[in-house]
Design a protein around this nucleic acid. Structure first.
Lengths: 347, 347
DNA sequence: TTGAAAGCGCTAACAA
DNA sequence: TTGTTAGCGCTTTCAA
């Protein structure tokens, strides 16, 4: 920088002003400086800038596991949103255990300006941990409601309800749900608990009885778990004409188990998932799902974090809650071949 | 840090020594400093450390697109390998266009110690760009062979050949390949070109004739492309008893198209993919594939990059090439139900 | 084994 | 509109 200043015959400060697009720089001076920058191949040292300004231009994104398609696609969307704002993103995976998540919450992800955190193990009971957080933080997902931070989430209850109403509207009456948490009476607010609630609301609204044998506890939400749960369901001889899986990877397993058992989808059993992952368009049959508004979630979360960073620590701004709009995406697994996605959306 | 030093009644330097686990610190002094650190909740400022030492403790990972399952799973493995070494990872997506890839190559991903780069658009003809790179760089994938950098890749030719030999071993004679690059006579060395070469070698070794109508150009490698290519293949009435798709997402689409057309897999048409993505175990039928050694690739690449970083710039160390071991993973789409993965591996 | 001093490259605050 | 000064927090060098 010193060299650039010398070559352009200006001071350090002027170089800084040009680099940072400050106003009040004479066009001619600016041009001279830019020529010097190009000539010397000067590139600002971001560590020094970070040290001086207290800003790194990098945010953290902590997700449980990129191998889960939902999180990979979420990370993709967050990266895009951050790039639009010229921010770098340090990605960390924290799903292994509780201790790891607590450590990340305590420290953030290295030297960053703020953190987008999608916890998996931490729950409402850990809300107190959030009070100790001194950096800008935006929570993603459903864990830890009511804490002192911004929170971006989806309409779990309403979307699940819409999914089941979609099945009811197609005449289905024996609707199973796969993916309830083994511990789902504990008063927690996991995605699974909320989605099961939406399922029950839809049954109630349609005048259909709840049947405990149709509410299947499944964890984790991987294809093999969906397949195993579906096999068990069929083996028990329970009458079923539709399955609502709480995410799409469970649904992939369910489709597989139904195929093995010779059940036709959707004629014998309709299937709808949740997340609208890309691959769902290409299963056989293609998978109906809930589009949870992933891009909106990512964009909103990054925007909120950037605002918090600009406000500075301890600004006392009230925590905000944003719920993204969702859509029911009807494909072959519920409405059969020739179906086109009909946006039965809401928000 | 100054506060810690005062509280522990030592100098800055001693605090620094303790924080960095230097030897030659008196145990008692160390304990006193650590107590002070805990009491004050001191955490080193990584920007300052980076400014002073020239190291940031962060590496960059540039991949084309996290929504492609292969890259999401690769990123997962790289993150894990980096975390073992206490390195942060800034992830960037660069697949949009050539200009973007060139920009990333010129600058790295913000302030990092080095870059793992998996280019998509840049090719052997851009090798010259690598000469201008002044930071530690390790290339992933097949583009840009023969440049002056370390390179971690897979046995594309051999693995593709093994996949086709697997099909031949099952008695298949009319084997199509999906995913050749439209421009594959150009002498480029894309993954697709190498895998097609392996396909041809296997045919030749088995005494089977090449048939241009069986070599299908498909790009990009998304499920919809695989489905479309398969539909075209069937529509043309070409006799086929096996399909080798150059990646697994193409295979998912192929399975779908075959199912639509009423062809049984593997009885009528066997299918094998490449990448061994997680979901492949749960398609119906489950998908045979090539496990390309993803964890080995990630671990080796990070290790190489860390070495280059330690050596310092312009160390003149010769470029290295590492090819990871692969395995043929046989599942239902080639050997039918009841199949168990038989490791026909090599390296 | 520990301390003192210098300075990494940049920007904030102030001055001209 | 531009320049001067100071210092962000750490590690390095050299000395004790």
């Amino acid at each position: 920088m010193r060299d650039v200043a010398l070559l352009a015959r200006v001071s350090n400060k002027t170089v800084s002003n040009v680099v940072n697009d400050h106003p009040h720089v004479h066009p001619e001076t600016r041009a001279r400086v830019q020529r010097a920058i190009a000539e010397l191949g000067y590139r600002p040292n971001l560590s020094a800038r970070g040290l001086r300004s207290g800003r790194t231009g990098v945010i953290g994104l902590a997700v449980p596991d990129l191998r889960q398609t939902y999180f990979a696609e979420l990370a993709d969307a967050v990266l895009a949103a951050a790039e639009r704002r010229n921010l770098g993103v340090i990605v960390g995976q924290v799903g292994v255990d509780r201790e790891h998540e607590i450590a990340v919450l305590a420290n953030g992800l290295r030297q960053t300006d703020g953190l987008l955190f999608s916890p998996e193990k931490l729950g409402t009971e850990d809300r107190g941990l959030l009070d100790g957080v001194e950096y800008p933080l935006v929570l993603l997902g459903e864990r830890i409601f009511g804490g002192p931070t911004d929170h971006v989430t989806m309409h779990n209850v309403e979307a699940a309800r819409a999914a089941v109403e979609h099945l009811v509207g197609l005449g289905r009456r024996r609707i199973a749900v796969l993916g309830a948490h083994p511990d789902h009476r504990s008063g927690q607010l996991r995605p699974s608990d909320l989605r099961v609630r939406g399922y029950r609301e839809a049954l109630a609204a349609a005048g259909l009885p709840e049947d405990p044998r149709l509410e299947r506890e499944v964890a984790p939400w991987l294809p093999e778990d969906g397949a195993a749960a579906t096999r068990r369901l069929l083996a028990e001889g329970i009458e079923v004409d539709a399955i609502f899986t709480l995410n799409d990877t469970l649904a992939v397993g369910a489709l597989r188990a139904l195929g093995e058992a010779g059940r036709r989808v959707p004629e014998d059993v309709a299937v709808i998932g949740f997340d609208d992952i890309t691959l769902g368009r290409f299963t056989l049959p293609s998978l109906s799902s809930i589009d949870p508004g992933r891009d909106e979630i990512a964009e909103t979360a990054v925007a909120m974090l950037v605002e918090r960073i600009a406000w500075g620590a301890g600004s006392g701004h009230a925590p905000r809650l944003h719920k993204a709009a969702f859509r029911v995406v009807a494909r072959e697994s519920t409405v059969g071949p020739g179906a086109s996605a009909h946006p039965a959306g809401t928000a």
